[in-house]
Amino acid sequence: MRWIRGLPLLTLLLPVVVLAQAPSRGPARPRVVAVKSASLAPYASFLAGFSSEARADVTEVTLEESPTEAARVFKSLAAQKPALILALGPLAANAARRSLGGDVPVLFAMVPYHEKYGLEAPHVTGIALTSDFGPELAALKALAPAAKRVGILHDPRSSAGSVTQARSVGSGLGLSIVPLAVESQERVGEVLEGAVGKVDGLLMVADKTVGNASVVQALIAFSAARRIPLVALTASQVKEGATLALSPAPLALGQQAGRLANRIIHERVDPGALAVARPEGLDLSFNLTAAKKSGPSCDVALEVLRFAARRDFAVKVYE
C-alpha cells in the first residue's frame, strides 16, 4: 500500500468515493391530490394525461358514494395543504367546493352538467365537458350542407345562455337556431310535433330537464322519422341512434388539465379568476345507419371523415 505523508492512499480516496455515490436532491415537487368520485376507466385515462403534463407529484384518493364520507376526506386533505386538489366527478367536485377553504385551490373535471352544481367559488375552476357549440354545428353543416334551421330542445330556466351562445356561433355558419322551449318532460312530445317542418336538424345541449334517457329516445325517434340529423352529447347516444356526437377524449382532457394545473401551481394564477375552460380534445362518434337518412351513405360518411381529419378528431363509427 502506498503512503502519502503518513496516510494510506486508500484513506484519502474513500471520502471521494462516498461523495460521488451520494444522490443529488433537487427541490421537492408540488403535491397534487386527485380525488375521484368513483373508480372508472375514463378517470384512469384522464389521470394518465394529467400526469404527463403536470409538473407535480400526483396521489389518488377514491371516495365512497357518501357525501358525509367525502366531507371527512376533504377535511383531512385541507389540513395537509396540497398545492392543488384535482376533483374528478360530481361528488368530488361538490365536496371540494363545500369543504375546502380558499387556501387550497381546486380544479374540477369530468362533471356532466357542471352548471347545475354551482361550482363557482374564489378558489375553484375547472374544465367543462361541453364545447361552445362551434364544432358541433360545423359537423352538422358538413353532414347536411343544405341545413339552415337547427332546433334545440331546452328548458329556458337553465339553458337560455346555451341557446344564445349557439345562435352566435350558428350565425357565422349560416345556421339559424330554433329554440324548442319545454319546462317539463311531459311536454316534450308536443313541442317536438310543433317543430315538424320548422327545423332541418337538431342539436342537444346539456340541460337537466331534457338530459335523461326518455327524452334522448324521443329526440332519436323524431330525428329518424323526419329524416334529419341529430347531434348528440355522448358516444352512447350515437350508439343508440343519434347521428353524431363530439365528446371530450379523457386522455386529452387530462393533458389540458395538467397544463392548467401548471398555471395555478407554478405561475400562481388565481383559480377564481379563470373561467371554466372548454374541452380542447374531442372524439367524433358517428352512426352510419342514422346518417343514411341525410343523403347517400358514402357521400355522408366521406364528408364526416373529411371534417374530422381537418379538425384532427379521432372517429368512432357505429351502425
Rank of each mutant, 00 (worst) to 15 (best):
G118R: 08
E53F: 04
G26M: 10
L63E: 01
A290V: 03
R5Y: 11
A235I: 06
V73C: 05
G197K: 03
A181E: 14
G201F: 03
R25F: 13
A121G: 03
R149I: 02
G194H: 09
A195S: 03
C298A: 14
P23H: 05
K208M: 15
G258M: 06
N94S: 13
V188Y: 07
I264A: 12
L251N: 13
R31N: 12
L288Y: 03
T243Y: 12
Q21N: 10
M110D: 06
E53H: 14
G295P: 12
A290S: 13
D103W: 10
C298I: 13
S131F: 05
A87V: 12
E240G: 12
P30V: 13
G174R: 09
G197D: 03
S158E: 15
L13P: 08
K198V: 03
A245T: 07
T68L: 07
A290D: 04
A71I: 07
S171P: 00
A38G: 04
P229W: 09
K141E: 07
A109N: 03
V33H: 11
A28Y: 09
A218N: 08
L100E: 08
D207Q: 01
R25N: 12
E319K: 14
A109Q: 04
I220E: 09
A224Q: 15
P105S: 00
T289E: 15
S45R: 12
F313E: 10
I4E: 02
L253T: 00
P179C: 07
R5F: 15
A147H: 00
D312H: 13
F50D: 01
V35K: 06
R306Q: 05
S214L: 09
Y43Q: 02
A144D: 12
L173D: 03
R187F: 00
S131V: 10
E69N: 14
A290K: 06
S24T: 13
G101Y: 11
A78P: 07
R55N: 14
I228V: 14
L14A: 11
G134Y: 11
R31T: 15
V210E: 09
A121W: 05
P23Q: 03
S285W: 00
P135D: 09
P156Y: 04
A218V: 08
R227P: 07
R310H: 01
G170C: 11
F108Q: 08
L244P: 09
A275V: 07
D200A: 06
K36M: 14
A22F: 14
G102A: 12
V300I: 13
V35Y: 06
A147M: 02
